[in-house]
Nucleic acid binder design. Structure first.
Lengths: 161, 161
DNA sequence: GTGCTTGCAAATTCTTTGCAACTTT
DNA sequence: AAAGTTGCAAAGAATTTGCAAGCAC
């Protein structure tokens, strides 16, 4: 696995080492399904559904079953390697997590997703905590919109609430 | 329906007229299932699942079927009267929408939910838009935590990621 | 009466699980 | 060899739909 991860890291220009470090710590065995799914998720800038992940990963691992995809996704989610993307309707899309960037900007048309860096929420969180009496454990902030590419290609596949 | 809504409005102290106005505009017929579901949702400060809504609404409308609850929920969601609450696992909880308050604070234990007023996001939105080239259509901001009541009652039903 | 709504049951869709076979270490 | 993983098929959930009967206007 270690070897495989180093290879993928070398290819992925946008890769943070931390993500691969987490993988190395969290996954003990290097199996074909795992490697195939890692390849797909580490390279994708779009949120993908389990079926899409299966389809894409079958290029490297043709026998890959959907149940295995679900099992791998839940493992990777538990490790904090991927995030579930919540849209008005569909909440079954997954995207590689980026360390230090918790917030998202998602294209409602092509599902391209970007992690964004956001600082102001720290203060807001403590204000909220003080005012409401809640112990705040986490939050979910996601922006939806049309990426520049989709603004031009018209509303082909646009999917609005 | 108008009459029924006025009655409910009178009872609900926290009610904004706008919500009932929207209902009046969006719903033409006053049926027992609709009235029962409105009663439940307008009064609840917790996010509720379809089954919970059915159960609660059966007090007023014993024959209420689950399919009808789903149909009513999707109508009300389309009208902007309720919001779907997205949690790490479950995304099938619904809460009455509060006009002018888009953001939420949700107790992971009892699911008590409060709408919060948040202003800073406007500026952040335009910064993001400028930097990313996205046309931003909306966003989702939800805080999770433990409400003061649940901090004391221990971690009975606590449900963490 | 007309047309929207409902309840039921069946159909779909999405996700999880049991299990024997198979890999990885 | 031992332990963890996989694929398949079956099971479970969650949600949607077809349709005849019922209701609101």
């Amino acid at each position: 696995l270690r070897e495989f991860l180093n290879k993928v890291m070398a290819i992925e220009s946008h890769s943070s080492d931390t993500w691969f470090d987490l993988l190395r710590e969290g996954c003990r065995r290097s199996t074909a399904p795992l490697r195939a799914v890692i390849s797909v998720l580490s390279a994708s800038h779009k949120a993908l559904s389990p079926v899409e992940i299966q389809t894409a990963a079958r290029r490297d691992c043709p026998s890959l079953g959907l149940a295995t995809v679900y099992r791998l996704l839940s493992r990777m989610e538990r490790l904090g390697l991927i995030h579930r993307i919540h849209q008005t309707n569909h909440c079954n899309l997954f995207l590689r997590a980026t360390v230090g960037h918790e917030h998202l900007l998602i294209c409602t048309s092509c599902r391209k997703a970007e992690y964004i860096h956001e600082s102001d929420l720290t203060e807001l969180t403590s204000t909220l905590s003080r005012r409401s009496g809640f112990v705040i454990q986490g939050h979910l902030l996601q922006f939806q919109g049309l990426c520049s590419a989709c603004q031009n290609t018209g509303s082909k596949k646009r999917r609005l609430p």
